[in-house]
Deep mutational scan, measured.
Amino acid sequence: PPDDERKKAEKAARSGNEEKAREILERLGYSEDEARELAKRLR
Score class of each variant (00 low, 15 high):
Lys40Asn: 13
Ala35His: 02
Lys8Trp: 09
Arg36Pro: 00
Glu34Gln: 09
Ser15Thr: 09
Arg22Leu: 06
Asp3His: 10
Glu5Ala: 11
Lys8Gln: 13
Glu19Val: 09
Arg27Tyr: 08
Lys40Thr: 09
Ala39Met: 07
Glu32Thr: 12
Lys11Pro: 03
Gly29Gln: 00
Ile24Asp: 01
Leu25Trp: 05
Ala39Arg: 01
Glu5Arg: 07
Glu19Gln: 11
Ala9Trp: 07
Glu18Asp: 06
Glu37Asn: 07
Ala12Gln: 09
Ala9Asp: 03
Leu25His: 00
Tyr30Met: 09
Leu38Lys: 03
Glu23Phe: 06
Arg27Ala: 14
Gly29Tyr: 00
Pro2Asn: 13
Ser31His: 04
Lys20Val: 12
Asp4Ala: 13
Arg36Ile: 10
Glu19Cys: 03
Arg41His: 11
Leu25Gln: 00
Leu42Trp: 15
Glu26Pro: 00
Leu38Arg: 01
Glu26Ala: 08
Glu26Gln: 13
Leu28Tyr: 03
Ala21Cys: 05
Arg14Glu: 06
Leu28Phe: 04
Gly16Phe: 05
Arg41Ile: 11
Arg43Ser: 11
Arg27Asp: 04
Ala35Ser: 04
Gly29Leu: 00
Ala39Val: 15
Glu18Leu: 15
Arg27Gln: 13
Arg14Ala: 10
Glu23Cys: 11
Lys11Ser: 11
Glu37Phe: 06
Ala12Arg: 03
Ser31Phe: 02
Ile24Arg: 01
Asp33Gln: 13
Asp4Thr: 14
Ala39Glu: 04
Arg43His: 12
Ala9Glu: 03
Leu25Ala: 00
Ile24Thr: 01
Glu18Gly: 04
Lys7Ala: 13
Glu32Trp: 07
Arg36Leu: 09
Lys7Arg: 14
Ala39Thr: 06
Ala21Val: 05
Glu37Pro: 00
Pro1Lys: 13
Ala13Met: 05
Glu23Leu: 11
Asp3Cys: 09
Arg43Thr: 07
Asp4Pro: 10
Glu34Trp: 04
Glu26Ile: 15
Glu10Leu: 12
Leu25Met: 02
Ala39Tyr: 07
Leu42Val: 05
Asp4Gly: 08
Arg27Glu: 04
Asp33Gly: 09
Lys11Ile: 15
Glu37Thr: 09
Ala21Phe: 08
Glu37Val: 10
Glu10Arg: 10
Glu23Ala: 12
Pro1Val: 13
Leu38Tyr: 08
Ala35Leu: 03
Ala13Pro: 03
Leu38Gly: 00
Glu34Thr: 06
Ala9Thr: 04
Glu23His: 08
Asp4Trp: 11
Arg14Phe: 09
Arg36Phe: 07
Asp33Val: 09
Lys7Ile: 14
Glu37Trp: 09
Lys7Tyr: 10
Lys40Val: 07
Lys11Asp: 15
Ser31Val: 00
Leu25Pro: 00
Asp33Met: 10
Leu25Gly: 00
Arg14Gln: 13
Glu23Asp: 07
Arg22Val: 13
Arg6His: 11
Lys8Thr: 10
Glu23Arg: 09
Arg22Gly: 01
Lys20Asn: 06
Glu18Arg: 02
Pro2Arg: 14
Ala35Trp: 02
Arg43Pro: 02
Pro1Ala: 14
Pro1Met: 14
Ala39Cys: 03
Glu5Pro: 09
Ala12Phe: 15
Ile24Met: 05
Arg41Asn: 11
Ala21Thr: 03
Ala39Ser: 04
Ala9Gln: 02
Arg43Phe: 14
Glu10Asn: 04
Ala21Lys: 01
Glu18Trp: 12
Arg41Ser: 10
Ala9Ile: 05
Glu10Lys: 08
Leu42Phe: 13
Asp33Asn: 10
Lys7Phe: 11
Arg14Tyr: 09
Glu5Gly: 07
Arg22Lys: 07
Ala39Gln: 01
Pro1Leu: 14
Lys20Ile: 12
Asp4Val: 11
Glu5Lys: 05
Arg6Ser: 05
Ala39Ile: 15
Glu37Asp: 09
Ala21Ile: 07
Lys8Gly: 05
Pro2Lys: 11
Glu26Gly: 06
Lys11Gly: 04
Arg36Gln: 07
Glu26Trp: 01
Arg41Leu: 14
Arg14Ile: 11
Lys20Thr: 08
Arg43Gly: 08
Gly29Phe: 02
Gly16Tyr: 04
Gly29Val: 00
Gly29Glu: 01
Ile24Ser: 01
Lys7Ser: 10
Tyr30Arg: 00
Arg6Gly: 04
Ala9Phe: 03
Glu19Leu: 13
Ala12Asn: 03
Glu19Pro: 06
Ala13Val: 04
Glu10His: 08
Asp3Pro: 09
Leu42Cys: 01
Ala35Thr: 02
Ser31Lys: 06
Ala35Asn: 01
Arg43Lys: 11
Arg41Cys: 15
